[in-house]
Amino acid sequence: MSSGAFTGKMLEQEPARHTRKSGKAARWLKSGLVQFVVIAIMVLNLIPLVIVLSTSLRSPDNNTNPLNLFNELSFSSYRDAFERMHFGSAFMNSVVLTGISVVLVVILAAMASYPMARIQSKWSQFLYLFFLAGLVVPGQMVLIPIVQMINNMGIPSTKYTPILMFVTCSLPFSTFLYTGFIRSGVPVEVEEAAHIDGAGLLRRFWTVVFPLLIPVTVSVIITQGIWIWNDYFFNMTFISKAADSPLPLAMLGFMGDQQNPTQWNVLFAACMLCALPLLIAFSFLQKYFVGGLTVGSVKG
């Protein structure tokens, strides 16, 4: 058997020797072609962002064609945009809103998933699907009664009100990720020692199970954190004061400017400022962004 495999290999190598030279050239050509295709796609894909970056780096009164890339380097448009969107307070509002929401989502979703993953019964299966079904509900639809309801319940419209919607909206996907992860990745056996020690359920969960959930917690923080950070819709509904606006809502103040070429420099500077925090986070935490996106999908 081994000798058969050996001769098979020999036979295969024979014709290869003949074509080695042309094969090498062909491979070079092929890899060059692939490289070219990739670069072409990347350029096409990102050219709008490059133009936005280049235009944002002009002074507000430079009205030359945006296609003349980087023909000026000035931060005065950034200064204007910074002031107009109240960047400092908007950024802090975004941090607070996203931070509180994500912490709440992690706590609520991880806890809710624990019984759904551990108990095998019709009820736990129902609960799992019940949460999952929430994925298909559009937030805009729910909002019609919500506005009314929140008024009736006497919940004041503060800058924290959107958190209620952020948390609720994030539960379906987060419980889905957590439940799948606990089912496949955290065997009951790990809890046995704690169980024998007489630790209560709550302590067992937070000291034994939760630390094992770090990969999926990262995934929840990233997938939910990105949409909450970027959301303008719930913020737009509940926040009326400019001083309370997070970044995407502050951008809404530029609505209409995209139709007026003389406003583009400042508008694009604002766009860059709005995207900058996540871009910086991404460049440092890339591994977690990509890993976090795929934890759920591979185990799925």
């Binding site: 970027n230 303008y232 970044l247 951008m251 400017d257 766009c271 709005c274």
Partner: peptide, 13 residues
Amino acid sequence: LFSAIVVGFIWSY
């Protein structure tokens, strides 16, 4: 990573 509102502005341009 861009907010839909920023993407909307960019593509309107």
